[in-house]
């Protein structure tokens, strides 16, 4: 589902995607309030990236989720699935009304489950696993000479998992230039700020040393996101790592950069305030 880039200039595309992402932020707040639990901070930080993927970058068909040779998206930081559900509902994978079933029995699962939701490619939620899965998809594409691309979003806390570095080594070995790993670098995890819990810096240098093409951007700036994906497409012989500087809880003043909003749902009043803020800007 790509927008017709030929008839729109870049600024129009950026404006349209930014507006979509703003609407999805409202959906995220709304569904988490109704769910009564979940992860707003990391969902709000990543939604611009997820919006760009579903509404611009990826070749996919919401009416045919198993379309052959579709681009693949793996949300390795599975706790941010409200962002993915909001974008998927917006794209037409399922009815928007379903968003209110999040975390309720029989409804949308609290973390991504491919066997429960058409369009989700793999189960994630135990951190560290998604990049390996994305690697396998990219390797299969290469093996078959297919041109589909694979996108994986990881979290910063998730980078503390050893499996991420296994995949980092391995993706470079196989020269997976059809794979993009985006780090939603929102700088906080459940127990605190990443640099206190388990320091990650320097990040760009680490991935460059692992032989990845590293691009650093403002991950809440739509134009920079699109540019980074374009640069990734143009890069040959290496996988691309997008170091996306983001703000945890982005768009809701009282959630921004607050560790406590990693895994707590807003109550009715908080949700109302958040949605008012989002609607004002």
């Amino acid at each position: 589902m790509q927008m017709a880039a030929t008839t729109e200039d870049r600024s129009q595309i950026v404006a349209k995607l930014t507006a979509l992402a703003k609407g999805f932020r409202v959906d995220i707040i709304d569904m988490l309030e109704k769910a009564g639990s979940g992860h707003p901070g990391g969902s709000l930080s990543v939604i611009d990236i997820v919006t760009a993927l579903y509404f611009h970058e990826m070749k996919h068909d919401p009416k045919n989720p198993k379309m052959a040779d579709r681009d693949r998206f793996v949300l390795s930081k599975g706790h941010a699935v409200p962002a993915q559900y909001a974008a998927m509902a917006g794209a037409g994978y399922f009815d928007k009304a379903e968003l209110s079933t999040l975390r309720h029995i029989g409804g949308l699962q609290g973390h991504p489950v491919n066997t429960a939701t058409a369009g989700i490619e793999a189960c994630t939620g135990s951190l560290g696993q998604g990049l390996s899965i994305a690697q396998g998809m990219a390797m299969a594409a290469k093996a078959d000479g297919k041109d589909f691309r694979v996108y994986c979003v990881i979290g910063d806390g998730e980078m503390q998992e050893g499996q991420i570095w296994e995949a980092a080594l391995s993706c470079a070995k196989y020269k997976l230039d059809n794979l993009v790993c985006v780090l939603d670098w929102n700088k906080a995890q459940i127990d605190g700020y990443c640099e206190e819990v388990m320091p990650l810096l320097p990040i760009a240098e680490k991935w460059a040393a692992f032989n990845w093409n590293v691009i650093e951007i403002d991950g809440n700036d739509m134009e920079q996101i699109l540019d980074a994906f374009d640069k990734a497409r143009a890069t040959k012989g290496k996988p691309t790592f997008i170091l996306a500087n983001t703000v945890k809880g982005k768009g809701v003043s009282f959630m921004e950069n607050q560790v406590g909003w990693h895994g707590a749902a807003p109550n009715k009043d908080q949700a109302k305030q958040a949605i008012e803020e989002l609607s004002r800007t």
């Binding site: 693949r72 793996v74 490619e121 793999a122 560290g128 696993q129 998604g130 990049l131 390996s132 899965i133 994305a134 690697q135 396998g136 998809m137 990219a138 390797m139 299969a140 594409a141 093996a143 078959d144 694979v150 050893g162 499996q163 296994e166 995949a167 080594l169 391995s170 070995k173």
Partner: peptide, 26 residues
């Protein structure tokens, strides 16, 4: 040789890679 993949001493990664390959029809 083109259908054999040496994954190195990375059993965890190998599991995930296999899942991704299966997703793409392997």
């Amino acid at each position: 040789p083109e259908r054999f993949f040496e994954m190195g001493i990375q059993e965890a990664n190998m599991v995930g890679v296999a899942a991704g390959m299966a997703n793409a029809g392997k």
